[in-house]
């Protein structure tokens, strides 16, 4: 592999990392705003939120939590593998992460289609007849898990690109900041889910 002259190459790994963190802060505040809306409405309609949250399948929620936590661990481990110059293990670990992410999305698909089949979806006649608080809960449920699922899809795309870059060697033990930042994004998706899960599925 041809190494360019490090003196001629502009590179600032610490800066790249700080930039990624600043982006993550905007994401935290984006979801933070939604959590704030949730908190205020929950405070105003606690009875309705209680009833509505009971409708969600806690088992699927728990399963998806386990899947995301495992996928976070495999991304973190892939960094270890790259630093140990073990490209093959790194690729396997990133592959496992992508498979877990796919399983998460499949679960989400079945969960949503089940709810939609029951007639609970934004704009449905059944939703319009619900108590105001229940309506708000399900709207927030769809919006927050939907926005989160969008992040999963983006994360999967980023990790796929990184997987190929590990394969062709442009991400290696010396140039690893892309993998680290991709990992940070994936952990962010995990962080958000850690709060979404109890607030939507468990607090009944």
């Amino acid at each position: 592999m041809a190494h360019s002259n490090p003196l001629l190459e502009h590179r600032d790994d610490e800066g790249a990392k700080i930039g990624m963190w600043i982006f993550i802060f905007t994401e935290i505040l984006l979801f933070g705003g939604l959590f704030l809306v949730y908190a205020v409405f929950r405070n105003q309609y606690s009875e309705d939120f209680h009833t509505a949250a009971f409708e969600l399948n806690a088992f699927v929620g728990t399963l998806n939590t386990v899947i995301l936590l495992c996928s976070s661990a495999t991304v973190a481990m892939s960094i270890t593998a790259v630093l140990k110059k073990d490209r093959k293990t790194a690729m396997i670990l990133l592959g496992i992460t992508l498979v877990l992410a796919l399983v998460f999305m499949v679960n989400k698909y079945f969960e949503w289609s089940h709810k939609i089949h029951e007639g609970i979806y934004p704009g449905s006649e059944l939703m319009a007849d619900l108590e105001r608080g229940e309506l708000l809960f399900f709207s927030l449920y769809y919006f927050m898990t939907g926005l989160h699922a969008l992040h999963i899809l983006i994360g999967m795309t980023i990790l796929t690109v990184i997987l190929f870059k590990v394969r062709n060697g442009s991400v290696n033990d010396d140039k690893i900041v892309l993998l680290e930042n991709g990992g940070l994004y994936w952990h962010l998706v995990d962080l958000i889910w850690i709060f979404l899960f109890p607030l939507l599925y468990l607090i009944t």
Binding site: S72, A73, V75, A76, E180, G183, L184, H187, D190, L191, I194
Partner: peptide, 8 residues
């Protein structure tokens, strides 16, 4: 824990 260990 995620911030400390996974996010390094």
């Amino acid at each position: 824990i995620v911030l400390t260990y996974f996010m390094h």
